[in-house]
């Protein structure tokens, strides 16, 4: 396992030029997620209508893994039904636990590749929270559950 497996081009691209990194003008759900151990923070904004995620964006500070994962997450969830979003979130979180269940998932190749670019992180246990922070926060946002969450509580 070398560093390049972790810092793949797709991850570096999203880290240096994150997508949807802006505060939405119109949103009806938002949650701030923190990783208190390292100081990463993401604020996720969602505009959802009739259980469809119309728009999603984020603001935040963090390492390349955290920002790239958040950027990929917003791209993947935008336009999805909330139900499909939860399926995708669970898929990604399982991926980070080394539990593959992709046969049940209908996702297109682009999404599959984007999400699986993060697969090597399981070999860097100290960094898994960097990747999962925004996905866990997004789930809380869509469920409109908490205004703030701490990733340490979601282990």
């Amino acid at each position: 396992m070398n560093t390049k497996d972790l810092y793949q081009d797709l991850i570096l691209d999203h880290a240096t030029n994150p997508k949807n990194k802006i505060k939405l003008n119109y949103y009806n759900k938002d949650t701030e997620g923190f990783n208190r151990l390292c100081g990463d923070s993401v604020h996720i904004f969602v505009h959802s209508k009739n259980n469809i995620i119309d728009d999603i964006s984020f603001l935040g500070n963090g390492c390349a893994i955290c920002i790239a994962s958040t950027s990929v997450m917003t791209q993947a969830l935008k336009g999805k039904s909330e139900k499909d979003a939860f399926t995708l979130i669970n898929y990604f979180l399982d991926l980070m636990k080394k539990q593959n269940n992709d046969e049940h998932l209908k996702i297109d190749n682009v999404e599959y590749n984007a999400l699986n670019a993060f697969k090597s992180i399981v070999n860097f246990p100290m960094r898994i929270n960097c990747a999962t922070l925004s996905w866990i926060t997004a789930e809380a946002t869509i469920r409109n559950k908490n205004k703030q969450i701490n990733i340490e509580d979601y282990k």
């Binding site: 070398n2 560093t3 972790l6 810092y7 240096t16 390292c38 963090g62 390492c63 390349a64 893994i65 955290c66 860097f124 100290m126 960094r127 960097c130």
Partner: peptide, 14 residues
């Protein structure tokens, strides 16, 4: 510049 301390720390560890 432009590289987060945790990324630096992970790469240096390698």
């Amino acid at each position: 510049d432009e590289i987060h301390s945790h990324d630096v720390s992970t790469i240096l560890d390698q």
